[in-house]
């Protein structure tokens, strides 16, 4: 009787009061529509048209721009580069972050709070400043590259063609290990202590506990961090665009798809084509992020 009463009560309450939730969400949605949905719609519209070179005005060309992008060697040059970047950088960054988080969480570290704070510190450094900083460090003028080479007897020039991508990998890793470490660490703090006790009773050593208890327990956080990293890698722009001023001949206008879209718009006024590049890259990113999420959650089951 009382259960029935609550159910009917809840239904009435739903229709009147719950609807007010919309009032809370509406302001966000209005701005969201303006800065997320509208540009996407506008970009899609642009991508279906092409500017007439001599007569002015736009003509509808259907999917022709898309055909051009997927057969554009410059686009693929950049796309393959960010894929390569992703394949190298993300495992290094997330690996370091995971090791750091596990170390700080393990209780075997002296002064764990200091480690946590300092490792997170680069996240507070604006990306632009980080690139300028490392750009100077890489240089031979007053950087540390010369000193390090003298010390190790090597002759690495970070701003040469051979090392450029590695140099960018290093900058991004330096910037974001701390952020990911914090995500992993926060997730580790929520693992119930009982699990560790059970593992200890079963005679699991520290490494065994890490691989069989801790890492599986924070799989969700790892998947999230991976997805954020995919998105970050695929929109690589700041680092190469700023380093370009230090090494103009090594980084071309289509070094990454994002730089390509940017330079098409602001160097070449090819807005329609630029919008198409942005959409294609967005779709590729979304697909890869989706696959990772799917795989991640399936393995979690």
């Amino acid at each position: 009787m009382s259960a029935l009463h609550t159910v009917s009560n809840r239904r009435r309450w739903w229709s009147h009061r719950e609807i007010r939730g919309w009032a809370f969400v509406a302001p966000f949605l209005v701005v969201f529509a303006l800065v997320f949905l509208a540009p996407i719609g506008y970009a899609f519209y642009l991508s279906l048209y092409r500017e007439q070179a001599f007569f002015g005005g736009n003509t509808f060309v259907g999917a022709a721009n898309y055909v051009d992008v997927v057969t554009d060697a410059r686009f693929w040059d950049g796309a393959v580069r960010v894929l390569e970047f992703f394949a190298i950088q993300v495992p290094i960054m997330l690996g370091l972050a995971l090791v750091a988080a596990l170390a700080i969480d393990s209780g075997r570290l002296r002064a764990p709070r200091t480690f946590r704070l300092v490792i997170f510190l680069p996240y507070a450094v604006p990306g632009v400043v980080a690139v300028l900083l490392w750009g100077y460090l890489y240089g031979t003028n007053f950087g540390l590259a010369g000193d390090v080479n003298d010390l190790l007897g090597t002759a690495i020039r970070p701003l040469s063609e051979r090392w450029m991508l590695t140099s960018i990998v290093n900058i991004v890793t330096w910037e974001f290990v701390g952020y990911n470490m914090l995500i992993f660490y926060s997730a580790l703090r929520t693992v119930p202590e009982d699990l560790y006790e059970a593992a200890a009773l079963d005679g699991a050593g520290p490494l065994r506990t890490v691989f069989s208890v801790k890492i599986p327990a924070i799989r969700g956080a790892i998947v999230i961090a991976t997805i954020f990293s995919i998105i970050g890698s695929f929109q690589l722009f700041n680092e190469p665009n700023i380093l370009r001023n230090l090494a103009p001949n090594l980084i071309d206008t289509h070094y990454t798809p994002n730089m390509y879209a940017y330079n098409l718009s602001f160097g070449g006024q090819q807005y329609n084509y630029s919008a198409t590049v942005a959409i294609v890259m967005g779709v590729i990113t979304a697909i890869i992020a989706y696959v990772v999420q799917l795989r991640g959650s399936r393995e979690a089951l």
């Binding site: 969201f32 800065v35 997320f36 509208a38 540009p39 996407i40 506008y42 970009a43 642009l46 997805i227 998105i231 695929f234 929109q235 722009f237 994002n258 879209a261 940017y262 718009s265 807005y271 630029s274 919008a275 942005a278 959409i279 890259m281 967005g282 990113t285 979304a286 992020a289 989706y290």
Partner: peptide
């Protein structure tokens, strides 16, 4: 929709936003 928006690269939106 909002969660999906997290997956959209900000910079991919920037050029269309600029044009708009």
């Amino acid at each position: 929709v909002v969660l999906g928006a997290i997956a959209i690269p900000n910079t991919a939106l920037a050029v269309p936003t600029f044009l708009m």
